[in-house]
């Protein structure tokens, strides 16, 4: 009756200097946007979106951020990792032209989503954005899909942000639904430029239990929980939030304003 599986890393692949992908043999059934709670029993447990899953294996693409993710990214094949999940409300696949906007490591869950949308016959446009060129992740993965894939880095070429590039695409494409994952401020800026169309954003907030009991990831004012009702929220839910792009909460529950 345990809700956890402890698995050997089958393969670990560096994704440029800033991230690594961990592959596991697992029959875990994961829907696009869902996440797992991951620990190596050294220190802490963190949520990670699943980048890919096919019924016999799963892949997590993890960005090197703090001590936790750096330690996980430096693991070797054969090392043990313990997972709980999958948890959370997934993306809902909407028919029509789909615009996927990823910022930084937020691009990871959009890969599984893109595969799902393409498999159900939708035209998929992907915007992959990052602060720097070497922080762009999974370009090769998307390149192999039947998708209109664009990437932009704020230190290269036209120096567009993902939101600026998305705005250009929205000017000439009749997009049915926008899907985004990445920094909350990116998604807040994206929301501001969207025409009157449906959208779904995947949230990343401080999480402690992952199963809806500790209250750490509840959004204001309704208290919808990123770990259960989210991480993917739809337009109707996001429009009612008072904290979206304004503040998040830390491990004590104190409000931490987003730095604009």
């Amino acid at each position: 009756m345990s809700d956890r599986v402890t698995l050997k890393i089958k393969r670990i692949v560096d994704e440029g200097p800033s991230a690594a992908s961990l592959y596991f043999d697992s029959d875990m059934k994961v829907l696009p946007g869902q996440f797992v709670m991951l620990t190596d029993y050294e220190e802490g447990e963190r949520p990670f979106s699943v980048a890919d899953a096919d019924g016999s294996g799963i892949c997590l693409t993890i960005k090197r951020m703090g001590p936790f993710s750096k330690r996980i990214c430096s693991k070797k094949a054969g090392d043990l990792i313990s997972l709980r999940g999958p948890f959370g409300n997934p993306f809902t696949l909407v028919s029509g032209v789909s615009l996927l906007v990823g910022g930084g490591a937020g691009i990871a869950p959009l890969y599984l989503l893109a595969r799902g949308l393409i498999a159900s016959g939708n035209r998929v446009i992907v915007v992959n954005g990052a602060r720097t060129q070497d922080a762009l992740l999974l370009g090769a993965w998307f390149g192999r899909l039947d998708a209109d894939y664009r990437e932009t880095a704020e230190d290269t070429g036209e120096k567009l942000s993902s939101v600026q590039l998305a705005a250009r695409i929205l000017e000439r494409e009749k997009v049915g639904c926008v899907y985004a994952a990445g920094p909350e401020l990116m998604m807040a800026a994206l929301k501001d430029i969207l025409p009157d169309i449906p959208y779904q954003f995947s949230f990343e907030r401080y999480m402690k239990c992952g199963v809806g009991v500790c209250g750490s990831c509840a959004c204001d004012p309704s208290g919808i929980r990123v770990c259960v009702e989210g991480p993917v929220f739809g337009r109707e839910q996001i429009e009612k939030l008072s904290d979206f792009g304004v503040y998040k909460r830390d491990s004590t529950g104190a409000r931490v304003p987003f730095r604009k």
Binding site: M1, D3, M37, E45, R46, K208, C209, C214, T252
Partner: peptide, 21 residues
């Protein structure tokens, strides 16, 4: 620090550690 919750056949084990603001 986590893991702070676990399931077993009879219910739950937790040690959230009285986090509060």
């Amino acid at each position: 620090e986590g893991p702070v919750v676990a399931r077993f056949g009879g219910g739950i084990l937790n040690s959230l550690g009285l986090c509060n603001p």
